[in-house]
């Protein structure tokens, strides 16, 4: 695996949009000129059950097709998963974990059993409730992920998400605006403290 390749693992519950988030993330980064992969965990799909999805992002073509076991970034859509799944598996001492939670990074680090420097928190559920009107944390978490990864183009991601939503919600401009605001807010609010 090339050193420049980014590998991401998403944790959610069936129905929360972990797969969709990975797909949206991949599509958005493609428009910024990156090579991408997005794939769901190859398992049964059941509403409420813990599910995973994955992303690879690279500046060069991606030929690797095995699973992701040591992700640099882990995104947790549902904090209740912490008790059910080993979300830090393969994260090591360098990987970064982004959690949708109201707790601080310090508190989360204690829970996760990893260094505080590796933990990022954002209250995506609160953001989505305030901006979209529903607890749909996957869209804001896109923004948080882009911020934590660092060298990605948030405006490109926003533009692509906007154009996709415009097709889907032509008659509901408030939904589009809400989603975009949620991404921007999570981008700004995600923190390591």
């Amino acid at each position: 695996m090339s050193a420049k390749m980014i590998e991401v693992r998403w944790h959610g519950r069936g129905g929360q949009g972990a797969k969709t988030a990975a797909l949206l993330f991949a599509q958005a980064l493609l428009t910024t000129g990156k090579y991408i992969q997005a794939f769901p965990e190859y398992g049964p799909e059941r509403m409420g059950a813990p599910v995973q999805s994955f992303n690879r992002v690279s500046d060069t073509p991606i030929t690797i097709h095995c699973g992701i076991t040591e992700p640099q970034f882990v995104v947790i859509l549902d904090p209740s998963l912490l008790d059910a799944v080993d979300v830090t598996e393969g994260v090591g001492t360098q990987g970064k974990v982004i959690v949708n939670t109201s707790f601080s990074a310090e508190e989360m680090a204690k829970k996760l059993g990893i260094a505080k420097e590796q933990v990022f928190v954002v209250n995506a559920s609160k953001i989505s409730t305030e901006t979209i009107g529903k607890d749909i944390p996957n869209t804001p978490m896109l923004g948080a992920l882009v911020k934590v990864i660092g060298n990605l183009d948030i405006n490109g991601v926003l533009d692509d998400t906007k154009s996709k939503l415009e097709v889907k919600f032509r008659s509901k401009p408030e939904v589009i605006e809400g989603n975009l605001t949620s991404i921007k807010r999570a981008y700004d609010e995600v923190k390591n403290s």
Partner: peptide, 12 residues
């Protein structure tokens, strides 16, 4: 194509 690995994987 290989099931899931390619069939369900979004790529460029």
């Amino acid at each position: 194509t290989d099931g899931f690995i390619i069939s369900h994987c979004m790529e460029v």
